[in-house]
Design a protein around this nucleic acid. Structure first.
Length: 561
RNA sequence: GACCCCAUCGUCUAGCCAGGUCUAGGACAUCAGGUUUUCAUCCUGAAGACAGGGGUUCAAAUCCCCUUGGGGUCACCA
């Protein structure tokens, strides 16, 4: 409609480097990327760091790392890990200040914008007044009434000012959106918004319009929170004589409980856990008392990531996963996250659900974007992840799991021999919903024999104590058979235990396997028993059985108590 | 509050734009049964939705209006 028949599609993802990349942002980036790639165009990454206070280089690096992990590579943008660069840079807003000022001056000269000298405090007060009187606040244009001499005097004395865009007229603004159709906004709903802040940085509205024009962006795909802002952008584009890109606004992603997925969710989870358990001071050794005090004072005080994780660990709390990094740590596969994210707000139709990036490049288009909000369903993601893990070759899984362990659980790499590690990977693959899933239940593989603690649960007691012969009796009987075994492999162990259970447990393998499992792991959960024994090695297995038997009386005493 | 957006199983969605083939399809979750040495898997089956009300039409999940519900925006944040 209003677009200028673009020949080459150019999309951009323009995040603010003020924190970790969350799944909502990742989905926006994915859609921008997919659309560009599906139409033979370019995907541009631009860092919207116009908020000096909140932007950080660390956040920027993390963001690019996350994008690359997901396989969302940019054709142009900051240089990172071998990609980036391009002819339309710089790709950081903070390095384009002179460009913005040129256009600000242009608007100022043409009388389409004006300087305003109110302080933030002035405006806050005015806003509060309006609120008290229950009407909507609009900037009253009082700066427009200032005469030239006064303005010059203010300027001379170095008084800080902002530049406001002067709304041109009262005509309704028509925005054509590819997913929502035509949206009209009444200018009466807006006021003369700020386009240049007192610190000399442009606001988002101004920077985005200038950058999109100069970078030849043809399609603006972004979150729905910008739908109303688009009217401002359109006005600015008209005032500056810029082209109008195609707009597509994506619906938001929500938590299963209907609340908006937000960076604050982790903090919220922590606070409610603390409240529920009525914890009054920092559980040592997690965070310092000073930090605890500060954090407790206000909901606006949020712990940094390390402290959040430390506290959550101490409370045995699983933090909600909302950032891309959370999903990586939790052991989700990037291609699965991409698949799931794409499905959350887009559908290829025909009941197709499982697909990869290549499929997206082949089929992605704006017309199948879903208009309604979506809730993030972790169960479904988990199911997809399990499917993907099960579909991998044993070698692929082993390598991936190795890399994951090396990064997040190095003990598995350090304590186990390569042969043991490979066997454990093979034993865990089909039962791993995520790369992290079996780490917890596999701890006993890397523990010292005498560090195993026997779970005081009904299932453990039953397996060990019930029946005649009891699990303990079986353990005592089978121990010498295992101790005498020379060839310690799964294939050698299996017939021995099988034979024993046929002769002494009515062929019920479970009667023998469960006590064995408990003896070596301390619990009723482990990979298949023969694999488990093979991985542990004869010495450890015999040691652990011996220890379990020696502990018999004590276990009975404590479990009766 | 004002303005804007949205509305199919519990959840993600197909179907809607081009009304009939929809006693509404799939996936995840749930439930039941089965396989299995534990957990997790795996197999089979079941239950489960067009928010409500008005229109238009021979015919409405599909088009229109209202109501209700949900969400977003109203910053010198993006």
């Amino acid at each position: 409609m209003s677009q200028t028949n673009p020949t080459i599609v150019r999309t951009r993802f323009a995040p603010s480097p003020s924190g970790p990349l969350h799944v909502g942002g990742a989905r926006t980036a994915l859609f921008c990327w997919a659309y560009a790639k599906a139409h033979g165009g370019s995907f541009i990454l631009r860092i919207e760091d116009t908020d000096q206070k909140r932007s950080s280089d660390a956040a920027c690096q993390a963001l690019m790392h996350d994008l690359r992990w997901l396989g969302i590579d940019w054709d142009e943008g900051p240089e990172f890990d071998g990609i980036g660069g391009g002819d339309f840079g710089p790709y950081f807003c903070s390095k384009r200040l002179d460009i913005y000022h040129k256009y600000i001056d242009q608007l100022l000269d043409e009388g389409k914008a004006y300087r305003a000298f109110e302080t933030p405090q002035d405006l806050d007060a005015a806003r509060n007044d309006a609120k008290r009187q229950k009407h909507n606040y609009r900037y009253d244009r009082s700066a427009l009434k200032l005469d030239q001499a006064t303005i010059q005097a203010y300027l001379d004395e170095g008084r800080p000012y902002v530049v406001r865009f002067k709304l041109p007229n009262d005509e309704p603004i028509l925005v054509r959106d590819e997913v929502r159709g035509e949206v009209t906004v009444d200018p009466k709903e807006m006021d003369d918004f700020v386009i240049l802040k007192a610190d000399g940085y442009p606001t988002y509205h101004f920077a985005v319009v200038v950058d999109d024009e100069l970078m030849d962006i043809t399609h603006v795909i972004r979150g729905q929170e910008h739908l109303n802002n688009t009217a401002k952008h359109v006005l600015l584009q008209d005032a500056l004589g810029f082209r109008r890109p195609v707009f597509a606004h994506l619906s938001l992603i929500f938590n299963p409980d209907g609340s908006k997925m937000s960076k604050r969710d982790k903090d919220k989870a922590l606070r409610s856990a603390v409240r529920e358990e009525n914890i009054q001071s920092s559980p040592t050794p997690t965070i310092s008392d000073e930090t605890w005090q500060w954090w407790s004072q206000s909901k606006d005080h949020q712990l940094d990531l390390d402290d959040t994780v430390a506290l959550a660990d101490a409370l045995n709390l699983v933090l909600p996963e909302i950032d891309v990094d959370d999903f990586r740590r939790a052991g989700y596969l990037p291609q699965v996250l991409v698949n799931y994210l794409a499905l959350l707000g887009w559908s290829p139709g025909n009941d197709v659900e499982k697909f990869d990036r290549a499929f997206l490049i082949e089929h992605f288009d704006l017309d199948r974007i879903i208009k309604s909000h979506a809730k993030f369903d972790r169960d479904k993601l988990l199911a997809f992840n399990l499917d993907a893990i099960q579909a991998m070759s044993p070698k692929q899984f082993r390598d991936l799991w190795y890399a994951h362990c090396r990064e997040y659980h190095p003990k598995f790499v350090e304590e186990l021999s390569p042969e043991q590690f490979d066997m454990l990977a093979a034993a865990n693959q089909s039962r791993s919903k995520t790369l992290d899933d079996t780490v917890k239940s596999s701890q006993f593989f890397i523990m010292a024999d005498d560090a195993i603690e026997y779970e005081q649960t009904k299932a453990v007691r039953k397996a060990l104590c019930n029946g005649d012969p009891s699990g303990y009796d079986h353990l005592a009987a089978i121990k010498p058979l295992l101790a005498d075994l020379t060839d310690w492999t799964k294939d050698a162990i299996e017939p021995v235990v099988d034979k024993y259970s046929k002769e002494h447990a009515n062929g019920k393998l479970g009667k023998v396997a469960q006590p064995l499992r408990i003896a070596v792991s301390g619990s009723t959960v482990s990979p298949a028993i023969f694999e488990t024994l093979a991985i542990l090695g004869r010495e450890a297995v015999v040691n652990r059985i011996t220890r379990c038997l020696a502990n018999r009386q004590q276990f009975l005493d404590t479990s009766n108590a």
